[in-house]
Design a protein around this nucleic acid. Sequence first.
DNA 1: TCTGGGGTCCTAGGACCC
DNA 2: TCTGGGGTCCTAGGACCC
Length: 424
Amino acid sequence: MKRKIYALVDCNSFYCSCERLFRPDLKNRPVGVLSNNDGCFISRTNELKALGVKMGAPYFQVKDLCEKNNVAVFSSNFALYTNISDRVMNTLAKFTPHLEVYSVDEAFMDLTFIASKDLDSYAREIKACVEREVGIPVSIGVSFSKTLAKVANHLGKKSEKAKGVVVLTEDKLLDIALERTPIGDVWGIGRARTEQLKAMGITSAKKLRDFKNDRVIQKQFTKVGLMTKEELAGEDRFTLDFLYQKKKEIMCSRTFADSIVDMDDMKQAIANYITDACEKLREQNSTCAKLEVFARTSPYKNTPQDYAFAEVKLLSGTQDTLRLIQVGMKAVEKMFKPGFEYKKAGVRLCHIVDERESQLSLFEPGDDTRSSQLMRVVDLINRREGDGTVKSMACGVTNIAFRMNRNFKSPRYVTGYSELRKVN
DNA sequence: TCTGGGGTCCTAGGACCC
DNA sequence: TCTGGGGTCCTAGGACCC
């Protein structure tokens, strides 16, 4: 049987590249995009990396440096990024029958059907096409497994010579590549595992691949750890799942621009998060049977600390925003402690199942037809007229929940387009 | 003044069952 | 002196990803 071939396509500095798309004047300037509330950097161009600004660096710490170096700083504009991402993925889909969208800026493609000698030129064609049709620069790594494609992609980003495409299908090249890849750069090896592996003398990807004792690896690093090792040896263990997967948990949380000290404000924020999460729940035709509510103070501030948490289990699954707000408000009363300055709060919907399999209970009413119809109409109106057009009274009118500092936001280039599409 | 917002999977251990 | 043994389900918590 022919070995699998995977390509990993990764958009370069994705959020920054999206901003540049509409601002050609930023082409050679350092660009950075900030997290919500303009907290820290979540995307940086090479020019910004060269200035020493790290991923996750708090903005206020490097503000002076940025001003001195004429860095173009943006607040995040996720509506824009999602829209551009869709366009990239649609372009990629033309090149393979099997595409797995792995994140907003990455996708795996099955290229097994391409002859080995043509892989490099095919990958370059893909790259050129995305850049021509969407305008976003990408890097592509190609090899026998997802983990190896990641390694190849990494090299493609770093090497000048590669011009954004690296194909690793020859043993000799693979050996060199794996030797040059520090163990911590391997996909699936995080900080904790890096330390453990180093202590065992495993400092590079090659040393992990060639480590003799599989049982030790499995014992210390779980089944997934062993699969990573096998992937490095070119075995296809993380197979492609190109089917649309429903979320098993849905979260919504935010850091507040101003802390919350009042329970009614907290209730309002939580009601908004429940509304948001329930919309996503209905979008994938699911119900949930557990709601978690949490809030925490700022760990960076020298004030009394608290992590408040409450959960509600329902006997029957629901997708009814109003019902979840009802139980959610009781949960807030249970967890909220006066005297603390809560800086962040959120909700998580758990025990998610398909609405057709949703458990009915003898003791608790399930969602009745009227509630379903109401929710459907609400979703329809909000999709057409914009989020929050129709909502529960509990959400309030002043928007405590989603108020953020966004001092550097780019204009709404494409949001209208995106909202139109959602209606269909 | 100032530090994001999502997700996934795995394992260990307890509850419960026969 | 010694506590059955195995299976399943659930949950909490850790680790990792972008």
